[in-house]
């Protein structure tokens, strides 16, 4: 849309959908409908709906309510790091 960007950094933010492929590589299943409970404010949100900052050394997923960092992902040539200290838990439907 035609709009003056009040803050390019906010405009660059996307959502968890944007890293769905990366999450599926890690977990072997679609994770965008998985619920994350924010360890900061206890709000539930689907991973697909988290705020995602993807233009940096790694990915940072944040709570849409309180902006707490729920998870970080870094891919190096030899490893994938997933840190999720900011999530009280992830809740997903069992597979099979």
């Amino acid at each position: 849309m035609d709009r003056d960007e009040p803050d390019m950094n906010t405009a660059l933010m996307v959502d968890g959908n944007a890293v769905a492929g990366q999450l599926e590589q890690i977990f072997g299943r679609d994770m965008t409908m998985t619920i994350a409970r924010c360890a900061g404010c206890a709000r539930d949100a689907q991973l697909g709906a988290l705020m995602a900052f993807i233009r940096g050394p790694g990915v940072v997923l944040r709570c849409p309510a309180c902006q707490n960092a729920i998870a970080r992902i870094v891919e190096t040539p030899s490893a994938i790091y997933l840190e999720a200290r900011g999530a009280a838990y992830l809740r997903m439907a069992p597979q099979g």
Binding site: R55, G56, V60, Q67
Partner: peptide, 9 residues
């Protein structure tokens, strides 16, 4: 000048 960040401004 690419913008890189890990969170909101």
């Amino acid at each position: 000048f690419p913008v890189l960040s890990a969170g909101p401004t």
